[in-house]
């Protein structure tokens, strides 16, 4: 049994959690202040979670291996960092338009996991059991110049963060530039890049608005990849049944509470940016249309299908796309 430094109480089980994002942001706050306390509560104090944020234990590049090998018991895994090993998760990026409410987004994640078995198989292959799913705030377009709509990114140097975004930007007519994430702040300030397309919470946490004072927020354009909070399967299987139940219960409660956090985080961030003198616009249908262009999406999806078949053994890749189309449509219809 492990001793806790504050009270000297004895916990039966101590679990390590690793998250590469720094504390104090929307998601990490939620994990630290909602999910973990709930786990400790629902397991009647049998479980203590030692959370490590900011990549202090495992960085975004290390977490997959570290979680699989059991360096950490629980982890936050962001599929965008593993475009090949979590290839199936890239499928969400092929459906840029999504519902705005968390309940509908989470239904999309739930249904896709049920209908597309490869999603869970990829995590199982890494010895991971997915518990909680969260998501980043939707897409923001931050420019260091005045923009009224997406048409204003044409001909400008924009930073793209994934191959799918690169293709979209090219298609629209911007010059995609690859600047490392940690150089984006300075690059916006000095003008190496004119703008950055990213998730709104990351944009806020990295203070990009200090250099990109003109932004378009697109709640309809979700950040697509699920932030997946997992537990090592060996660790999970060794847990007593009542503890497993407690963790699942806690996760269910937390999962539901994330909706409020998500909605208010979007509002608060917009408010904070307006207060900081940022010119905030909301994306309209025309802006969204640039990203849902049929030719563009067909190209992206065909690329995904080809690779899914050739490299990842997903023979029914077309089916995957069709299922996702239906799932997304159902989600959109609910709004």
């Amino acid at each position: 049994s492990t001793t806790n430094e504050e009270g000297g109480e004895d916990f039966e089980i101590t679990l390590t959690y690793s998250d590469h994002d720094p504390p104090g942001a929307m998601r990490t706050d939620f994990v630290e202040n909602v999910w973990i306390p709930e786990i400790e509560k629902q397991t009647n104090g049998q479980v203590k979670v030692n959370a490590n944020f900011g990549g202090s234990l495992l960085s975004s590049q290390e977490v997959l291996e570290g979680a699989a090998d059991g360096v950490t018991d629980m982890a936050m895994i962001f599929p965008d960092f593993y475009p090949e090993r979590l290839f199936t998760y890239q499928i969400y990026k092929l459906f840029p338009e999504a519902p705005e409410k968390w309940e509908n987004i989470s239904t999309i994640f739930e249904e896709s996991v049920e209908e597309l078995p490869k999603l869970n198989e990829e995590l199982e292959a890494l010895n991971q059991k997915p518990l909680l799913v969260t998501v980043g705030l939707p897409t923001v377009f931050g420019a260091s110049y005045e923009i009224d709509g997406i048409e204003d990114i044409i001909g400008k140097d924009w930073r793209a963060s994934s191959r799918w975004h690169l293709e979209s930007m090219k298609h629209i007519g911007a010059n995609p530039v690859s600047v490392p994430w940690e150089d984006v702040y300075m690059s916006l300030e000095t003008g190496v890049i004119d703008g950055v397309m990213t998730n709104y919470d990351g944009f806020h946490a990295m203070k990009f608005y200090e250099g990109a004072q003109d932004i378009i927020v697109g709640p309809q354009l979700w950040w697509a990849s699920p932030f997946t909070h997992t537990i090592n399967l060996d660790v999970w299987n060794d847990l007593p049944e009542d503890v497993q139940e407690g963790i699942l219960k806690a996760t269910e409660i937390a999962q539901e509470k994330f909706g409020e956090v998500y909605a208010s985080a979007l509002e608060n961030t917009i408010e904070a940016h307006e207060e900081a003198g940022v010119n905030v616009k909301m994306a309209d249908e025309e802006d969204v249309a640039y990203f849902t262009d049929e030719e563009l999406l067909n190209n992206l999806r065909n690329t995904w299908i080809e690779e899914a078949k050739a490299n990842h053994g997903i023979e029914d890749a077309e089916e995957y796309i069709n299922s996702m189309l239906e799932i997304m449509q159902r989600g959109l219809d609910k709004e």
Binding site: D80, F81, Y82, P83, E84, R85, A160, S161, S162, R163, H165, L166, P176, S178, N311
Partner: peptide
């Protein structure tokens, strides 16, 4: 074996 790639705009 896992065909690990960097997270970037190209593979």
């Amino acid at each position: 074996q896992a065909n690990e790639i960097f997270a970037d705009v190209v593979k």
